[in-house]
């Protein structure tokens, strides 16, 4: 009987976890991030967003002493200026994809609280210098597949 109770508790825990994950899946993962163009179309100051795009080459400024990071995020159509305080992940860099968590400010920039680097599906041997196509990466960022 005790064994059975344990199983029933386990069942409830699992059902609860499933419900939560499906809820989180529907509300969060269906539109995991918005693109700069979508944010630009209807920006709400103070609202929390996940913003995904490419770091525009030449736009990245990094102050190692104050940990002030600023760059421009683009989806090929629109751009959004971004500011952040902290160390970005290893894979973060110009011409690479990134997904940011943060909010749009009334001052007209995106204040990122978390920077996540989006990896492309391209893998390269050290001597293989061919850069992953910018357009290709943008496509995977938008989740358009191929």
């Amino acid at each position: 009987m005790n064994q059975k109770r344990k199983l029933i508790v386990g069942g409830i825990v699992i059902a609860g976890a499933l419900t939560y994950m499906i809820y989180a899946g529907v509300t969060q993962s269906a539109v995991y991030f918005v693109t700069p163009a979508e944010l630009r179309a209807a920006p709400v100051p103070g609202k929390a967003y996940r913003l995904g795009g490419m770091v525009v080459p030449g736009s990245l400024k990094w102050e190692p002493r104050s940990l002030d990071l600023s760059f421009t995020l683009s989806d090929g159509t629109a751009t959004v200026p971004v500011r952040h305080k902290g160390t970005p992940p290893d894979l973060f860099g110009e011409g690479r994809g990134a997904v940011l968590e943060g909010s749009w400010t009334a001052d007209g920039y995106f204040k990122a609280t978390l920077i996540m680097a989006k990896h492309s599906e391209e893998y390269k041997a050290p001597h293989d210098q061919s850069e992953a196509g910018y357009r290709e990466l943008l496509k995977t960022l938008r989740g358009e597949g191929r």
């Binding site: 989180a24 899946g25 969060q28 993962s29 992940p89």
Partner: peptide
């Protein structure tokens, strides 16, 4: 953690 900068996020792959 080292590559994305996070242990976990609720995107469609990780959720599913």
């Amino acid at each position: 953690k080292p590559t994305w900068g996070t242990w976990w996020t609720w995107d469609a792959r990780l959720t599913s």
